[in-house]
Design a protein around this nucleic acid. Structure first.
Lengths: 161, 161
DNA sequence: CCTGAAATGTACCGCCG
DNA sequence: CGGCGGTACATTTCAGG
């Protein structure tokens, strides 16, 4: 894993395509090298399928943290949200009902990064309190959201007649 | 959205590829029809990019719920986990430190399904208590986990020398 | 709206610089 | 590691059912 691998993977996420040609336009890395690198990343288990889903452990972002955020905002809800979104490692941000205002999920390289992350959260003026939870293990994560449904149920649920 | 669309989308998730040929092997739907359907799904905004990321709102799974689970298990942690995983709609299952044992995320079609989901959780013998939170809005969700990092940070974080 | 067959495009592989 | 072709595919298109 070196800088080129990183730039290729980031380009895939940003562009939303795994096309070597498009990645080349974005990164300037030669097309044949992109092939070569992607094959290596597949063999290393970082990329898990044709859809370029990543194995975060293999990638080096094996620490997951859940952060509940209580905020005191006056109409600046969207501002707080976008500030949180920009914190490095935050991959999901939910606006929730009930006791907390936001729930964020972050994927980080190690414990040190967790400390840094929490300081960043606490550094946001509108943030009153945070409550963090270490994730011991990601037991299941289905990016495309359909695996848990049987085909018959999906038909029931999604087909609008 | 009819049964064929559903079967195509499910096949993509299950197979981990968007290749029309592979989808045809799985579903028996003619290759050119698959392409025709996928184009329609793209135009409808259900599929958002070449990586087949789905817009859950457009798909019809616009309701997201967070479920914290407190369980009383004697060595059967893995059993409880796999039971939860099989509940329809559950897309993420985390094993957490602290007050709760698991946190699950579910994507559902409507409020009625939320009730059904919670009854399924409560129906698991080892589950003592659940605490659910409605998600008002998914403000941000980065499936590939790298967007929030700048390239330079990613290099710092991931490159092992 | 679906599909089979034709046309186009791309990935992939080996070779050489 | 990077470039360049050639080949073998898979994807895409489209006219007709």
């Amino acid at each position: 894993m070196d800088e080129r691998d990183v730039r290729i993977l980031k380009a895939i996420g940003d562009l939303g395509t795994g096309s070597p040609e498009r990645i080349n336009e974005e990164t300037g890395i030669p097309v044949s090298t992109i092939h070569y690198r992607l094959n290596n990343l597949r063999e290393a288990g970082v990329i898990t399928n044709d859809l370029y889903d990543l194995d975060l452990d293999a990638l080096g972002l094996g620490v997951t943290v859940l952060v509940e955020v209580l905020a005191d905002y006056a109409g600046e809800h969207a501002d707080v949200a976008s500030t949180i979104t920009e914190i490095e490692g935050v991959t999901t941000l939910l606006s929730t009902m009930g006791e907390t205002d936001f729930v964020a999920v972050a994927h980080l390289p190690d414990d040190k990064a967790v400390g840094r992350l929490l300081r960043e959260f606490e550094g946001i003026p509108a943030v009153e309190r945070t409550n963090s939870t270490y994730v011991i293990e990601t037991l299941y994560d289905d990016a495309r959201a359909l695996s848990s449904y049987s085909t018959e149920s999906l038909v029931d649920v999604l087909v609008d007649e």
